[in-house]
Amino acid sequence: MWFDKNVGYLANLQDLFTYDGSIYLHWIGNSALYAVAGGVGSTIVSILAGYGFAKFAFRGRNLMFSLLLGAVMVPLTALVIPTFILASDAGLTNTIWAVILPSLLNPFGVYLMRVYIGDAVPDELLDAARVDGAGELRTFLQVALPLMRPAIVTVLLLSMVATWNNYFLPLVMLSDKTLYPVTVGIGVWQGLASGNNGGGHSLWSLIVMGSLISVVPLVIAFLTLQRYWRGGLSIGSLK
């Protein structure tokens, strides 16, 4: 890099993938796991709740939805410290669940799904299916779900990005470095490098290389899926 010109990119790359028992690959793998598990999980939760809010005029709905809108405004990072204490009491700190489970909470995703389903899934269609004898679950899975695709992709992508980019939560929850996502791992490298403590190994080139590579998966995801999310992003604002 600017101060390490002699070393070739390929050598750096090889160094990155083998340093400290290939810890970097571990981190990328962890990030992928957290992003997929947290993203898919919170999307499923959001779809179900969005559908429930949009299509069932049940008692308690308005109260629950106002609470949800209030939740959009609660500083989620301010929840991290009490969540840490609770997770620690439950013995969950320093496990993957301490990162995955809290990321299931995605009030904004529910909000987006509700607004979208309200517009894109006509009541008449659902009623027709019910009249034909389809149960609630089948109506949901076979009639409503296919109509939600753009919103699902958007919510999925947004929540995966949020989990992939998450730093505060895993930073606080995890102390075993083999569980770190790539964001926390590189942050730790930065701390070690600033303290000149790579044990004789210059970490700066690893940090630069590792940062660049960690960006690639999301960039690819955004580029390939842009047809879906570009439309989906306007859901919350057009109403």
Binding site: V45, L48, G52, F56, F58, R61, M64, A71, P107
Partner: peptide, 16 residues
Amino acid sequence: RTLTGWMFILPFTLVF
């Protein structure tokens, strides 16, 4: 309807 509605938002409610 109330029951079905709550069933759909149950996972979210739990997480919430």
